[in-house]
Measured scan of single mutants.
Amino acid sequence: DEFHFHWNGRDIRVRGDSEELRRLIEAIKRGELSEEEIERAIEILER
């Protein structure tokens, strides 16, 4: 699976399928994380 979302003017695409990944992306979409937490998560996910 590939998750695709927009954040902070960026087009983010992440491959993978796990419950943890889904929860993280939902939290990002709901605005539950700080900008710094989101940046760090995206860096890890894009590897």
Rank of each mutant, 00 (worst) to 15 (best):
V14W: 14
E35Y: 13
H4Q: 05
L33Y: 07
I44S: 09
R22I: 12
E37P: 01
H4W: 10
D1V: 11
H6T: 08
A27Y: 15
E46L: 14
G16P: 09
H6Q: 07
F3M: 05
D1A: 09
I44T: 11
I42W: 05
I12V: 06
R22P: 02
G16C: 03
E37N: 05
R47H: 13
I38Y: 03
L21G: 07
L45E: 01
I44Q: 08
I25E: 03
R22V: 09
E19Q: 14
G16I: 08
R15T: 12
E43R: 08
E32P: 02
A41R: 10
H4N: 05
E2F: 11
E46C: 05
A27F: 14
K29I: 08
E20N: 09
E32I: 12
D17E: 09
K29P: 01
E37A: 12
W7Q: 00
I38S: 03
E26S: 14
I42F: 04
F5K: 00
R40W: 12
L24D: 00
F5D: 00
E26T: 14
A27E: 07
L45G: 02
I42D: 00
R13V: 15
I25H: 03
R40S: 08
E20D: 11
E32G: 10
E35A: 12
S18A: 07
E19V: 14
E32V: 10
R15M: 11
E32T: 13
I28S: 02
H6I: 09
E43W: 05
V14K: 00
G31A: 07
R47Y: 09
E2A: 05
S18P: 07
E35Q: 11
R30N: 10
G9N: 05
I25P: 00
H6A: 03
R15P: 13
E20W: 13
R22K: 09
R30P: 01
E43S: 10
D11E: 14
A27W: 15
L33W: 12
G31V: 03
E36A: 14
F3D: 04
I38L: 10
R23I: 12
L24H: 02
E26R: 15
F5Q: 00
R23L: 09
G9R: 01
L33V: 06
G16V: 14
I28P: 00
R13E: 10
G31E: 05
H4S: 07
E36G: 09
D17R: 05
L24T: 04
F5G: 00
E32F: 11
R23A: 13
H4T: 11
R30A: 12
I44P: 02
E20Q: 13
I28Y: 13
E35N: 14
L33A: 03
L33M: 12
I42Y: 04
K29S: 09
W7L: 03
I25A: 06
R23Y: 10
R13H: 14
K29E: 09
N8W: 01
L33E: 02
L45V: 04
H6V: 07
G16W: 05
D17P: 11
I12N: 00
E43G: 07
R15K: 13
R15A: 11
E37S: 06
E32H: 10
K29M: 12
I25F: 15
D11A: 15
D1F: 09
H6L: 04
H4D: 04
E35D: 14
I12P: 00
I38G: 01
D17G: 07
E46T: 13
G31K: 08
E19A: 14
L24Q: 02
R47N: 13
K29N: 10
G9D: 03
R40G: 07
N8P: 00
E46S: 07
I44M: 11
H6C: 06
A27R: 14
I44E: 10
F3H: 04
K29A: 08
E2I: 09
E20G: 09
H6S: 05
G16M: 04
S34T: 13
S34E: 05
E43K: 09
R10F: 01
N8H: 05
F5I: 03
E19M: 14
I28E: 01
R40D: 07
I12K: 00
I42Q: 01
I25S: 04
I44L: 11
A41Q: 09
E35P: 13
R22C: 03
E2L: 05
E39A: 07
E43F: 06
E32K: 08
I38F: 05
R40C: 02
E39G: 10
H6K: 05
E36T: 11
R40H: 11
E20F: 15
E36C: 05
E46G: 06
D1T: 09
E26W: 14
I12L: 04
N8V: 02
R10Y: 01
A27M: 14
A41M: 09
I44Y: 14
E43H: 12
V14R: 00
L21S: 12
N8L: 04
E26D: 11
I28C: 02
I25N: 03
E2V: 10
D17Q: 06
L33H: 04
R40E: 07
E19T: 13
E43V: 10
A41F: 08
E39P: 04
R13N: 14
R30Y: 10
R40N: 09
A41W: 13
E32S: 13
D1H: 11
W7G: 00
D11N: 11
E26F: 14
F3P: 03
E26V: 13
R30C: 05
F5M: 02
V14F: 11
L21A: 13
I42M: 05
L45F: 14
E26A: 14
G9L: 00
E35L: 10
E46F: 11
E2H: 15
I42K: 01
I44R: 10
I12A: 00
R22W: 15
E2D: 12
K29F: 14
F5A: 00
R23W: 12
F3I: 06
D17W: 11
H6E: 04
G16N: 05
E20K: 09
L45N: 02
L21E: 06
A27H: 07
E2G: 08
G9S: 02
E37V: 04
S34L: 06
E32Y: 12
E35C: 06
F3A: 01
E19G: 07
E43L: 13
A41I: 14
D1P: 12
I42P: 00
I28Q: 01
E35I: 11
R10S: 02
S34H: 06
K29Y: 15
S18E: 05
E32R: 05
L33F: 09
L21R: 05
R10G: 00
E26L: 15
I28L: 09
F3N: 03
D1G: 11
L33I: 08
S18V: 08
R23F: 12
A27I: 07
I38R: 02
E35G: 12
F5C: 02
R47V: 11
F5T: 00
R15E: 10
G16Y: 06
